[in-house]
Structures are given as C-alpha cells and as structure tokens.
Design a protein around this nucleic acid. Sequence first.
DNA 1: ACCTGAACACCGTTCAAGT
DNA 2: ACCTGAACACCGTTCAAGT
Lengths: 204, 204
Amino acid sequence: VTTRSPGQRAGLTREALLAGAGDLLREEGLESLTMRALGTRLGVTPKALYSHVAGKDALIDHLLDQTLIEVRQPPVDAKDPIDGLQTVMASTYRVLLTHPDLVPLYLARQGAHGPNAHRLGAIITVLLAEAGVQGHAQQEALRVLIGYTIGFAAFAVRPESGSEVDGQSSGSRPRANVMLLNFTAGLQWLLTGIVRDWSTPDRR
Amino acid sequence: VTTRSPGQRAGLTREALLAGAGDLLREEGLESLTMRALGTRLGVTPKALYSHVAGKDALIDHLLDQTLIEVRQPPVDAKDPIDGLQTVMASTYRVLLTHPDLVPLYLARQGAHGPNAHRLGAIITVLLAEAGVQGHAQQEALRVLIGYTIGFAAFAVRPESGSEVDGQSSGSRPRANVMLLNFTAGLQWLLTGIVRDWSTPDRR
DNA sequence: ACCTGAACACCGTTCAAGT
DNA sequence: ACCTGAACACCGTTCAAGT
C-alpha cells in the first residue's frame, strides 16, 4: 500500500503518532505496540516515525506523560488540603486504571517525566505544604503517595490471578468499585499518618 | 566455541539456568537477559534451554518466584500478628530492593505465581486472620499490603529521577535507610488502619 | 531425554538517497 | 524537513535431526 515516493509528505505529526500509539495499545495490547505496526497503521514506513520522535522509548515516554493530562485538578478554592490530596490521588488512580497496559510502564520508568507529570507533582507538593508537610518529609510523602497509588493500580488491573491470592474472589460484579474503595481507605490511612507524624506546625 | 555434537549432554539443569539468569541480570541488567545470551554464557545453543524451561516467560516466572525464598519467615511463636506482618512485609521490601531489575517484572506480572509466592501469601493470610481480619476484607488487605510494598519498592530503586520529584534530594548518604524508614512508616499506618477498620472481633 | 545446525518470523534502528 | 527502500544487528522460537 505504498503509493508515495520519497519527498512526498504524509502529513504526520507527533500528536498523530501518539494518538495512533494509544489506539494500538487499546485495541491490540502492549505486545502489539511496535514501531513497525504503528507505521503500517499510519500508512508509513517505520523510519518515517523517527522524524517525529527520537525512538520507541521516547514515544512511550510521551504517551505516559500525555495520559496524565486526564488527571482531575482539585478546585482552586481548596478548603482542606487533605481533601485535595485525596481528590488528586484518587483521580490519578482512576486514570491509571483507564490505561491498564501503561501501568507497568510507569513503574518500569519510575513514573512519567514530562511536563504533565511535573505539573501533577507540583500540585501534590503544594497541597502537602498547605497541610504543613515540608522539606525532607515532603519529598518522602510524595514518594509514599505515588508509590502506593501506582502500586495499587498495578494490582487492581486484573481481577483474578492477583499474585499469591487464590482465584476465588467473592463474585466480580462491583469489582472496580470495591477496589476503588480499598484504594481510598488505604490512601486515607496514609494521609492521616503523614499529617500526624510528618507535619511541622510552624509555617502557614 | 562449539565442541559438542548432537546427543552429547551439556549437563544443564533448571537450577543452572536460573542461577545463570540471575547472574546475567545482576551483571548486565535486564536488557541483556536474553535466551541467546544465557545460552552462550552456559556454553550452549539457545534451543538447548527449551529442554529445561518452556520459554523466556516461564524462565522469568521461575526467577521471580525463586527470589522470594529469601523473604524472612516471622518467628512461629508470634506474639503480635501485627509485628509479624511488619516483619514479613519489611523483609519482602528488602528482598525486592536486592533485585532492582526484577521489581518492574513483579508488577508487570502482578506478582509471582509459584510455590514460594503462594507460601508467602499464605503466611500473610494467617497473620491477618490472627489479627481478626477475615473473609472479604482479608483478601483486600492482602492486596493493599502487596501493592504498597511492591509499588514503594519500585520507587525506591533509583535515587534521583524519581518520577515528578525534582532531582535535588537532600544528599544521598543514608538513602536506603531513609527509604526503609519511610516504607516502614507507611506500612505501620496501613496496618493500623486495616486492623481498626476491617477486623471482625468475633472469631479467634 | 537432551542437544545440535539451520531457519523462520519478527524486532528497533541506521544509512544513503530522494524531493 | 520529511519520507523512501534496503539493510544491519538483533530477538524468541520451531523444525528436523542426531545420540
């Protein structure tokens, strides 16, 4: 299906690459996300992709970061910073579950590293500061929250065969909701502990 | 270096394969863990490996499970089940950090699935039961604990470039210890919450 | 049962070249 | 700057065959 000679533009953009990669991931799974497959899907030679992206790793990095756009911002008139943290982390958890195949990649790369990830980290940091968690403890709290969220998401992705758990989970009807409630409970415990043990009451 | 004709035994065992794979992983990293590389390291054609292991995925599954042997068992005369849980999970965390390259694989495969993983899961389950956490809540607590432990381990592996955190962490001297303390703190909060909110006082 | 050589069907990526 | 054809250096895995 190659009706184009060298020099003719195919009209590719980085956005088109990311959209195609996202579709490929959603429809065919992680194993099928291949530079060659992405090329044929876009009607283009694999090499053409390298004009818009440094390589496969860079493409995935962009994909991971772009996904975080969907994370819901807490309202600016935040009354309670703890509520804000609960909102942001729960939204992050939900977004991660929407893209199950990406979850292991976030962990393999230790999170995303683009502008959206940075923005999200900044929001969490501000909320922690408002809750009186600063400096050293602030960075550690950030790691605890992110590690818990991504780790839990990774184990929530597939219903059965969940590590060493026996397969017989009690039905599977409201499973996603049950997992979300479990996640929220643990998150609340962590937030309570962080504020209780790591906050410095001086500033603010 | 092929001084062996078809039919001559090379003396391979599954244990030798796993040991070689572990060495390869430790010395060269995950990217270099290849059936071909493992073959040449053992002085054997790649195909010879398939006589002892179903394929690369199966080999990695065995590797993941075997690593869990190192997790320390809590003393049988356990006084406080919460102490026991703290011990087991912290030991698991430490073992995971000893094998950083494996951590993303645990998450990608949602934990290990072999006999050692099963044994570890059973130990945790018993401790939870002794703490009064049973049935439905027991499975959920198990997931919370495992998700937190592996997730935190994944973020503890590399010092800098930790997701959206700015690179300037306060020095790097006792970093592993600091992370372990952070992990332990969060673990304690989770255990406290699990027992407080999910234990049923009736049985035991 | 255990290992071999040769080969298949894939990968990501590079190079030189076209417009 | 953007895309092409051809090719390089890898993968995991299979097949038929040896002892």
